[in-house]
Amino acid sequence: MVNNAGQLYTMEGVAAGLIMLLTAYIVVSTTSIYTTGDTHIPDMQLEQLGSDVLAMMDTPDIDGGTSELVGFVKKGTGIGGGNDLQDEFLANCKMRSGDPDDNLRAQVYLSYRTLGGSVNTTLLSSPDPWFTGRENTVRVTRWVQLSQQPGDMPGDMRTDPQAVLVEVLLWRA
C-alpha cells in the first residue's frame, strides 16, 4: 500500500508534464502552418499596385483622349512601344512619398488571337536579364482595343480591329 502510494505524486507530475508539452506541441504546429498564409499579403499588395497602375495608364488624362497604355501598345515592340511601356509602368509602381521603391521589376507580354483562331502570347518588352522564372511574381492584365495591327509584331497577328490583353509580370527583386 505504502509503496503504491509512494509513486503517485511522481506519476501525476509526469502525466501533467506530458499533457502540457503535448498541447504546446500541437499549438505550435498548428499555428506555424497558418503563418505561411502571410505570404499572400505582399502578393495582394503587389497585385493591387500593378492593377492600379495599368488601370491608371489606361485612363486618358483628357476627355476623349487616347490613354498612355493604348499609345504604347499601338507601337508594338518598336520605339515608343513595349520597352517604354515597361519603363512607364515601373516608374508608376515605384513612385511613393519618400525614396522610390526601386527593387520592383516587370516584364510585359501581349496576348492576341491569331489568324488561325488560337491565342498567342508574345513578349512586348525586351526580356529582363535577371528574370529566372523562380521569382514570386504576380500577373496583372488589362484589355486594350486596337483598330489595326501594332508595329513590329509576329506575322500571325490579325490586322482588323481586335482586343488584345496586356499582361505584366511584376515581382520584387
Binding site: L8, E12, G13, A15, A16, M20, L22, T23, A24
Partner: peptide, 26 residues
Amino acid sequence: NEDGQWIVLMGLLVAVALFFLALIIN
C-alpha cells in the same frame, strides 16, 4: 491514494489555457 491528482488537474488547466490561446492566435 488520490492526493496527487491536483497536479494532473493543474496540467490539464494549463493545457486548456494553451488551447484557448491557440484558438485566438489561429
